[in-house]
Design a protein around this nucleic acid. Structure first.
Lengths: 236, 236, 236, 236
DNA sequence: CATGAATGAGCTTTCATTCAT
DNA sequence: CATGAATGAAAGCTCATTCAT
């Protein structure tokens, strides 16, 4: 890996090309398509092979483009990876924003949030492998992204509102923080998908069947509710 | 990634050299030391840089040995990685076996198991990055290990005994599986360490301080107990 | 030998780059020159050192280029060797096609064919060492070439026509196959050049002097004519 | 290849170990066996992969011995190859010496010599690939062998006697040299086996079937007899 | 007499990147 | 705007050989 040299050249060229302001003409459209193709391909390749394993050639090939185009649009491999991460966070953000919950029904809302998280993880496993890859690199790439800071996941806020509503209704206990509930949901959903390969070998069962997933989701729901509710017996 | 060049079966020399029967003489001792140094260095390097990022040269340098010796003792980079995984599982296994629990006190025992898991993860973060790396590769390396199958973690059995004892004493509910409790503990402990870098950026707080870790461990304990106990109010 | 690491199918880039359609601009011309230089250098190096002894570095150095360019244009060492073989066959083919024979004079024509073959072998000894190298590898490389199948040497057809003409004129016997005459000529011409080093040591004489070559060529001619003619006394 | 360094060390150690004078005890017997195993394995490996492709490790593995033993007994890879060549020549020599011919029947004797040569080549194809390998190296190894000079193939002498007998009997012409007849027989027999892989692809037929071999042998016999006999019609 | 351990140069190949239109 | 050509460093791995008992 030659990340060190990439660092030196990244600011200049990457800054020049990143996110072209407007795209109207035919050529601009084609260029946008090339860029998008590369970004999509890079997401898949990095998610599948990691940062080091995801070679520029693999990506340009998957995008049916050329190595050179990656440097043209993203400045460097690292610049491309950063945009992949940004894009990944943005998509998660957007999906969370689409959640419409009834604040009058905190239990149902919380269940829905869990369903959403588990379903999002299992449907977007590349979200998980990309995050693992970035954690392997100790978050050094995302630290370079200015845009990433803008995406403050609405999830915790959503959970906070649900919890407050539940407390107000005398359903939830008041001493449980939204942050911990969020981490509990994320951890249980994430771990199950993230470690499915080693766990499958370890437990001797396939964790990816729809039944297994449903069973696990049910367990998460009951765990979260028992953690949060004053009298868990009231609900399930 | 260079996984494609790795051989499916270990070469002759590696097969000959793995776990030599006797080590008595001075030179044999020195050879064992060389082998051990490589294995230890490889564990660190793979945990830090992943499989692809963990180059043979980085490892041999860290082991104060030579590239060539890696092939002499382990046959290939992949062969070395497999032994690193085996060793990692073995150490976790050994640590679990050292747990001595009082079956008369299921709540205390369960708490102790949680303490052990959280503490093991936070003290051995390379365990987590190695597992993540192997999951990125879809478990293909560990699948090639015959030895890995021998290590059936005692953790689930331990938890099963605790749960049975708790049920017998009228403390725990009977409809919670040891497998799910194990996964709950593992997930919450693992996720917190595994994703500490992206989470820290995301939550805007340092998750690695002793206080933060203690707080999270307490939350796990209360969550697990609420999930498992018939009347959680009895305990805390 | 590193044949095992060579890929069965040529990589993408090589397939894309082989025999580019048009070469008009200045840079395209230069690129073609680079490609040609590598091919020519590879022919020499492989002919001199064999497949295993002919290292990529030797070739790129002789071509005044870089190792990397061999992979850029030919995909692999094996891909390059295959093209060397193809090129070698093509050149032999072209040379044979330039032979213009008088079908009214079968004896003279046959003599001319022998002269051509012996002269071609002695002037292109790399043809022989390349073929020996490929036979050492049991023809595995040429078997991968699609183009090689297109070159069906005109030599046997030429000899067949000469034989038929000779038979029609009552000069040649009818029970001698063109294939055997071809093999006889090829064998005697080839062996003399191919084994010149060990034969020289063995026979204690230099086989490469013009006189020795001429003497051997005369012997081949008389042998072939005696094999083919009804009454060999008529000719010499 | 590091032949240059081998050269420097070869004389000393090789001279010390080569052909131990007498072997009587049990240990000496075992040592002799190890030596023979290596020599036999080396013959196969060099014949199959050539000099460069025939690695020391391949040989020691095939001999079920260790790399080190090759240096112990033969000094270097080159020293081993030289002994392989010497052994190969010696075996050919011995086989030729076993030929018992009736000098009263020159035609039958010549036919028998041809049968012997063709049969020897087809039964010992490693003789051919080793010779090709040595010719690729321009005879440089055999030139270093003192012993090789002792083996002056009896074949030419045998043929000379047959020719003289045939001339004396008024069967053979007097202007054909034994050397040329020898080369004619060797060339036709050798080429057919040596180039069988490329020829098979080229001619589109399998040259190794017993029928094809017999047919070719018959053609060689008729060609040689027509070359040698005053009136070839008398015999076949 | 025999051999496991060690060595460094060299192998083929892939890497991320820049050049030059 | 787009891209084929070029580049050198570094990757994983194998080589023949020597060391040290």
């Amino acid at each position: 890996m030659t990340v060190k040299t990439a660092k030196a050249t990244l600011p200049r060229s990457a800054a020049l090309r990143r996110t072209p302001a407007k795209r109207s003409g035919v050529r601009e459209q084609a260029a946008q398509t090339t860029r998008d193709n590369i970004l999509r391909a890079a997401t898949k390749v990095f998610a599948r092979y990691g940062y080091d394993g995801g070679s520029v050639e693999k990506i340009s090939h998957a995008a049916k483009s050329f190595d050179r185009m990656i440097y043209y649009y993203f400045g460097s491999k690292e610049g491309l990876f950063i945009e992949v991460l940004e894009d990944m966070y943005r998509r998660m953000n957007d999906a969370e924003l689409k959640l419409t919950l009834d604040s009058e029904q905190p239990v149902a809302s919380l269940t829905e949030v869990i369903n959403f998280v588990v379903s999002y993880y299992s449907r977007n496993p590349e979200f998980i492998t990309l995050l693992n890859t970035e954690n392997l690199h100790r978050g050094k790439h995302i630290a370079k992204s200015e845009r990433a800071r803008e995406y403050s996941s609405p999830a915790i806020d959503i959970i906070r509102q649900i919890l407050e509503s539940g407390v107000a209704k005398g359903l939830f206990r008041a001493d449980v923080s939204a942050r911990n509930v969020y981490l509990l949901i994320a951890a249980t959903g994430y771990f199950y998908i993230s470690n499915r390969h080693t766990l499958s070998a370890f437990l001797g069962e396939d964790l990816q069947t729809p039944e297994a997933l449903l069973e696990w989701r049910g367990f998460i729901i009951s765990t979260v509710l028992r953690t949060v509710m004053l009298d868990p017996l009231m609900k399930p």
